[in-house]
Design a protein around this nucleic acid. Structure first.
Lengths: 329, 329
DNA sequence: CTGAAAGCGCTTACAG
DNA sequence: CTGAAAGCGCTTACAG
């Protein structure tokens, strides 16, 4: 393919001048500018991205780490991010950790190799201590996930509140035997949500049997399994707070199959407010997360950080969470 | 950050030797190799990706163009692609055309700028004539989409058959008044599907009123709109072949809201077999597309093409399509 | 307004 | 087995 040298030779000008034209510098004679532009056009010249990267020490590329793109929560997040990145002149590299610590770390290496200008962490498998060393190689922004020890910008929701309002709603509906499938991992997000659940339960003097908590469940199939475990119980829960709408949908689907009535026999609260939640029957009562807003905000902060080069300042954007009541409760 | 020079200086060796160690070349003294590896470790050295790209004239990056990541069909496709790309040492750039011709073209420019080694086209907004010039800048693989004039590898399904078996099924169920919402664009995929529909209809001597065809509809909201247009008709269709499960879900959702029984008053056939199809009630009878297989196959072909450098040979992989019968028909 | 020169950080013939 | 040199294709001081 044509290089800047060839354009220079063809026009009888120096590579410097051609470069100035490419980059829209002022102080280039208008006639020469036109001649160069024509030559570029004729040769089908496009500046080589690798050379620009090396020379300019930036890549105009941002990596976003998620755990599973087929989860609508993430695909909506990524959709918003891709939109903003495009508008601001950045490319987006999709990194799926698939809930694997090693993969997550390997993706963070992109920062070290200067393969991206920044990383948005929308999924978190490793401890903050493990992530921290990467911050010196470039900006990291957390989106959805968070960790109190992290001194990077975080765009997230108040998960404690989310856990609380969902549970509160079930209690208000008269339930006292409530199961929880939100996860209770090392991760702060799930821990907070769990604390919100606990808080609501304790306020009402309700107990939480160990067998009614289901950590680390994510997909539709997981939801089906949970239903079966509950269904097999003597004197089991009458309601369940699920960690995501997919899990909730799986529970509901299977409940119907076994003629267990939702919400009469088992009430279900989901999380996210994915399109799915209003499509299935009964509609899922759920905690609405502002996915688009989170994605947009996180990407905007990332781009600003890259462009301003100014040192990463810690900040927290806490976005509102909302209970959406449908027919599953 | 540390460069190869600094590693060389620290070890007293030449950059050449360090480079050999990095790239696992044979013919490096074992002791020296160890010393270099230690120094790299101490300095936290990681080879600069931009320099490698420029020097090696490759990027180890592949772009995938889709039209909407929040469509589960595409997120499943991308999921499979990301997996294979990762295994083979490639990064994936997510390019959303958002059904916009200009955006699609801008994404194809990545190939010209040598910003990616290849492009997988899983969405097609432009005519082949417009795409064709890009093929001389690097490998292009079509996935899902296709065009008879294109001389690039294509991994796809027989959409004519898909249109046919879905329609045939409705006819077998006794329907004679069948609407079509599969799109009927310039794009070969939708045109073939439409021809399959026509073929089945003609075989049974059925006519297709103009007002019963709905081109260019994609999402859940579109499905709802279609339902309303049908619902408002005097003597309207008793069945509809929708272009995707999201459209089908929208139709069904709204039908239920207006007490129009599915399938008794209106039978619905979807397309894709997204998870959604089996979750909603009634379950969507649909045409199963092997999304994972398509994504995997397309990415494998792409990587092979890049690695072998051998000239793109035209080939077509036609994957099976299958009718999945549920309760919506 | 314009150009010669240096350099971004690698890798690969080439010579030894 | 090892190193000096060239070069991938740009852009940016610097000098004019």
């Amino acid at each position: 393919m044509a290089t800047i040298k060839e354009v220079a030779k063809r026009t009888g000008m120096s590579p410097t001048t051609v470069s100035r034209v490419i980059n829209n510098h002022p102080y280039v004679d208008d006639k020469k500018r036109k001649i160069v532009l024509e030559a570029m056009d004729e040769l089908g010249y496009v500046p080589n991205s690798s050379a620009r990267r090396l020379r300019g020490q930036k890549t105009n590329t941002i990596a976003v780490i998620i755990s599973r793109i087929v989860n609508p929560f993430f695909s909506h997040l990524v959709d918003a991010m891709e939109m903003i990145a495009g508008e601001r002149g950045y490319q987006l590299i999709l990194c799926d950790s698939r809930l694997d610590k090693e993969r997550e770390l390997r993706h963070l290496e992109l920062l070290k190799a200067k393969q991206v200008d920044g990383v948005i962490l929308a999924s978190l498998q490793n401890d903050w201590e493990t992530i921290k060393p990467f911050t010196k190689y470039g900006p990291i922004v957390m989106c959805n996930e968070y960790d109190r020890r992290a001194e990077v910008p975080m765009v997230r929701c108040n998960q404690l509140e989310g856990g609380y309002i969902g549970t509160r709603h079930l209690i208000d509906k008269g339930h006292t035997k409530i199961a929880y499938a939100g996860g209770a991992d090392r991760i702060e997000l799930t821990r907070d949500r769990w604390h919100g659940f606990q808080k609501a339960m304790e306020e009402s003097g309700l107990t939480i049997p160990q067998e009614w908590t289901f950590p680390s469940f994510y997909g539709i199939e997981d939801g089906k399994n949970i239903f079966h475990r509950i269904y097999a119980m003597q004197d089991g829960p009458t309601a369940i707070f699920a960690g995501g709408d997919e899990v909730a949908a799986g529970i509901i689907k299977e409940a119907k199959r076994f003629h267990c009535r939702v919400p009469d026999d088992l009430a279900v609260v989901g999380y996210d407010d994915q399109p799915l939640a209003s499509l299935i029957d009964p509609g899922i009562t759920t905690i609405h997360q502002p996915m688009q807003l989170m994605g947009t905000r996180a990407m905007e902060i990332m781009v600003d950080m890259i462009k301003n080069q100014r040192n990463v300042t810690f900040r927290e954007d806490i976005l509102p969470l909302e209970l959406v009541i449908r027919q599953s409760t």
